[in-house]
Design a protein around this nucleic acid. Structure first.
Lengths: 121, 121
DNA sequence: CCTTACCTTTACGCAAACGTAAACTTGATT
DNA sequence: AATCAAGTTTACGTTTGCGTAAAGGTAAGG
């Protein structure tokens, strides 16, 4: 028997993640997420919820919605099919480079904060 | 004898860091940097150059110019003086928390990228 | 059927972070 | 002195990421 998938309304998610419904709809306008429609109402699945988490994570890292869409789109690859694989590998490598640079930046700033803190005794 | 400090023009820095002069002037408008003036021309010192690096690092991490200014201002504390120390410690702790969260996000995304890449064999 | 809470679309508004063009000024070089 | 690259200010334009009405549709309870 198939277990009923969890479903969420837009306000469920906006409350859980502490963002406005407006933002979630905006992400939909920008093609970052596309929930099922039941009549006019939006119904979000667990996968939609995960996508939203990915979006917010991307935002915390300072990526633009356009960049986040690129990243998210990587998840929707036609399983097993290599369509422009090298192009995708390039994109992945670019993202990785950016993330590694960010991690360096973070570690640098954390050290700086420590030093600053020690000056405040 | 005092060693002559290095000096830079606006285009020196814009070339070195691959940003436009407009951006650098904008950072000045926003009080993030304030180079010496020799006549009407801007002359940047080594410390100014370091500030610019801090600005760009902050940008790579997705901070707004206003947030970056807050961070930078921490460096200009009246040496040894504790003016609202607890307030500053709070600010520092906030920054640290944000950075630690970001590092988690980065590590998460790096793992995800690895998984995606392995799907592309 | 009516209220109430929640949802919908449409559309204008706005702040941030520059881009871009206009219209000079300055300083070094020929 | 004339030229020319590089600097300057002023100011309007653009993109991104939503905020914020306005105006109404929908579903459940009383």
């Amino acid at each position: 028997m198939t277990v009923a998938e969890k479903e969420y309304t837009i306000s469920d998610l906006s409350k859980e993640f502490e963002i406005t419904s407006r933002s979630i709809r905006h992400y939909e306008d920008e093609k970052l997420i596309s929930p099922e429609r039941r009549g006019t109402h939006r119904i979000y699945s667990s996968r939609d919820r995960v996508r939203l988490q990915l979006i917010l994570r991307g935002k915390r890292l300072g990526f633009s919605l356009a960049q986040i869409r690129q990243i998210i789109d990587l998840y929707d690859l036609p399983e097993g099919k290599q369509k422009q694989t090298s192009l995708l590998l390039n994109l992945i490598q670019e993202r990785r480079d950016a993330l590694l640079q960010q991690r360096k930046d973070i570690n640098f700033m954390l050290k700086e904060l420590e030093m600053l803190e020690s000056k405040l005794d």
